[in-house]
Design a protein around this nucleic acid. Structure first.
Lengths: 248, 248
DNA sequence: GCCCACGCTTGACCCAAGTCAATGAGGCCA
DNA sequence: TGGCCTCATTGACTTGGGTCAAGCGTGGGC
């Protein structure tokens, strides 16, 4: 999953950007999962010289659709949402970005989507122009970006199937399963839902009420169970969840 | 708009592939609109040596989701649909490809979507492996592919907004407008709808009946008018069409 | 020229999901 | 400790678009 967007306001965390060598990059949490994975330790200097760490508080908008596109970034920690909005306020979340994902609209002067932090998020930011320059110098970096963009396109297409053809129950079950895969890959036993019910609705093309009712239904059927409020849940019957998805 | 897929059966048109130089490429209908636009006439030999023309009859499937990914192609003439299908037959068209567009799943061993010709279509096909090799040699080609993939991702995201948040009327009006822009750009005075009502429905996440009713409504409101059957129409009031789209 | 098939339209009815509204459960500040 | 404020849930009702079932028109085969 790699993306396209840009950032405006943010505060700089203590000392970030002050180290001039690539030592900071080498120990970075996303050294092997972000685009940086395509670079050797030596080449990383090219990136570390222009990259600047920023912490974005939850709810803050990094950039509006229509803004000038002058920054791009790797997500280091947290989560971002990429949204498309209509004049009357209807909103669709067209992408969720997690650590290791890339955000920014390259080769374009204008941002086409709005990017917002859904929780407090650490970014490693680059000037868009500078990043494009680095891309020219490192074919392996460009290749990795190409592969990721293709993977994002694939994701987007799968979400089109969901939005165009699946029932509310199937969409909610699918979303829970996506999160389940993500947390299992991270070795966590519990699924933490990183977004509010409203954001889930905006992601799935539903209303808050419908999302809530479907979750209640899954809970009543003993397929999932919430622990400590409504943001963390345990999967009691992942087979049943999968069954809701691909054979109804 | 660039894509991801592979092809299987097809018949070879008279003499295609028999010229060994790039002369054929130079006079190709999509020389300046397909990925080839990134290549100089001299460099084109690299592509023309491995490219093979094929004509795909309307309705023929080029490759199924799950097939081995061993071919890719430029669309020269006609139109393709990229679809995602569920076990029970529900289908979503996740992309329409026109002359100049690229189709194929690079860097992947398996096709993730089904690709079908919606009308008789001419392709310029490459072995996937060979094309990947050419990509390695021509950074400008790779860059153009990257830009197109990013543009496709943007399109896909706009379609997510449509599928997730727009009413039937807005979706149909939006589709007609897309076609209108395309035909205006081609200098045509009439809009020809390249797909059946059923395919329109699969593209818009609606049913045939709903699409038909919405078209009837646009016709009754004197916004569009059909000429010679139901595949060609004239736009009588494009302002009203746009108004249906972005301010309701 | 006739018939059948296929794609499109139209009508009548239904239901999944949206809307509107009330209630509940934390969390935060005074 | 109490009063908000925000977010989630639940209920009652409405509705846009789906479903089912006729018609209709055009084009191809015989």
């Amino acid at each position: 999953m790699s993306q396209v967007a840009v950032l405006s306001a943010a505060r700089v965390p203590d000392g970030a950007g002050s180290e001039t060598t690539a030592t900071r990059c080498k120990s970075c949490a996303v050294r092997t999962t972000a685009l940086c994975a395509s670079m050797t330790d030596e080449d990383l200097t090219a990136l570390s010289n222009v990259g600047r760490r920023r912490v974005i508080p939850a709810g803050q908008i990094l950039s509006w659709a229509g803004d000038e596109s002058n920054l791009c970034a790797n997500v280091v920690h947290g989560a971002l949402k990429v949204t498309s909005t209509m004049a009357d306020g209807r909103e669709q979340i067209v992408g969720l970005l997690f650590p290791g994902d890339f955000v920014g609209q390259l080769f374009e002067d204008e941002m086409s989507m709005t990017v917002t932090a859904v929780v407090e998020t650490d970014l490693c930011c680059y000037s868009r122009r500078a990043f494009e320059g680095i891309l020219d110098q490192f074919p392996r970096l460009e290749r990795m970006l190409l592969k990721r963009t293709m993977a994002s396109l694939n994701d987007a297409r799968n979400r089109m199937l969901s939005l165009g053809r699946k029932s509310a129950q199937e969409r909610v079950a699918g979303f829970i399963l996506e999160l389940y895969e993500r947390s299992r890959a991270a070795g966590e036993s519990q699924v933490s839902i990183p977004v509010s019910r409203g954001e889930m609705a905006d992601y799935l093309g539903l209303t808050i009420e419908t999302v809530s009712r479907q979750l209640t239904r899954l809970r009543a059927a003993n397929i999932i169970a919430f622990v400590n409020g409504d943001r963390d849940c345990r999967i009691l019957d992942s087979l049943e969840l999968e069954q809701i998805l691909d054979q109804s």
